[in-house]
Design a binder for these strands. Sequence first.
RNA 1: GUGGGCGUAGCUCAGCUGGUAGAGCACUCGGUUGUGGUCCGAGAUGUCGCGGGUUCGAGCCCCGUCGUUCACCCCA
Length: 422
Amino acid sequence: MKFEKIQAPKGVREYLPPESQSFEWVREQLIAPAKSAGYQLMELPVFEDTNLFSRGVGESTDVVSKEMYTFEDRGGRSITLRPEGTAGVMRAVIEQNLDRGQLPVKVWYSGQFFRAERPQAGRYRQFYQVGIEAIGTEDPALDAEVIAIADRGFKNLGLKNYRLEITSLGDAQSRAAHRVDLLAYIEALDLDEATAARAQINPLRLFDDKRPEMQSAMAKAPLLLDYLSPESAANFAAVQKYLTAMGIAFVINPRMVRGLDYYTGTTFEFVHPDLGAQSGIGGGGRYDGLMETLGGQSLSGIGFGLGVDRALLAAIAESTVPSQEFTSDLFIIPLGDDAKEQSLVLAQNLRNSGIQTEIAFGDRALKGAMKAADKSGARYVIVLGESELKEGVIELKRMSDGVTTSVKIGQLQEELRRTLSL
RNA sequence: GUGGGCGUAGCUCAGCUGGUAGAGCACUCGGUUGUGGUCCGAGAUGUCGCGGGUUCGAGCCCCGUCGUUCACCCCA
């Protein structure tokens, strides 16, 4: 009887050895700067009440209107796999009253996110993101710090070819004033039905259209940056000043559009040119009204999300991923039943003292076991057979050059710790 | 959701204008008694994504379907 194979769901990316080590490396590099800036881990559910996203992220966004994994649980509740991280953090902050203490609340998170999009290079239905949020303080210095933390993460990966784009969406008055003129401008354009519909939902989205005819049509459209209120303009200038002081290179992109509705003020995006169409490796911004929308007090926040999958692709494109050869310290080859039992005991003791130890399983021929040892990348090998058990002495073989040393079994741990300088 | 490319052994692929499949790598065993990486020898492995159709005959042609990939929309 042969059963049909089951495939992974469409559009998921999985990392198997040895690539999984590179993935883990990227994630750690991206998280490290947040930790060193005093941000603390928040471990959140991957599914939430659907209302959290429809209300928080915005009904008008593609993310909410057509990309969510939504289902009914057994109690008849509408549940959605999280498509982004900020809303969940805000929910937890409000629910657990974290905003009642020291502000800003500074947290980081990492994990899987889900969007039911058509997969493509660098775009998966389940993707991995590292993010931070700083909630409760309106200070352009905080905006600059958040951007600097993301930038540090990418620098940790050794990336050089990415660029940081920033802009400001201003405050409510700034956006309202701009919207009037932008709508008037768009009205004069001859748009196809789908594009006109998009303009209706959010006119800013037209700036993001990749079609050349739309690019040129929007070339002279009024820019939000030119409509910033004096306060917003001063705030944005301060952010730029701080970034410059920290030596962080950026370009101002007044046509930048973010896909989520809650952004206000400073927004930014990290773009890598070598990844194909999905070039954004991270992005974020300030959100003034989100917390209130979700039933909390009126506090502003700022944060980012960095795409771990895409950051890995970028690191691969720039050849900055360190070679992560898997190695262990010792490989034990037991010959015979007594030796097998002894090797388990020995390995346990060695591992307890910090020596990475593997065992050859399956009663293979010695030659085959040696090949396995070689492939495992183990630095040393011992064969544990009848004579070794009887005499209490083993030959410790160094795989790099084949040199062997006689060692008493009782002193093996000490000898290994010495030669491996543990 | 829309459009293009692709789908042959574990992996990378070959297979000419249709005649029922091959290479390299990897894997297993061996090259005399218990020691890897090189070399030599032997061996196992495919319902040619799946389902229909055309044909005397299809991996090669047609239709559908699934998957994958790239792009659009959108986004990390």
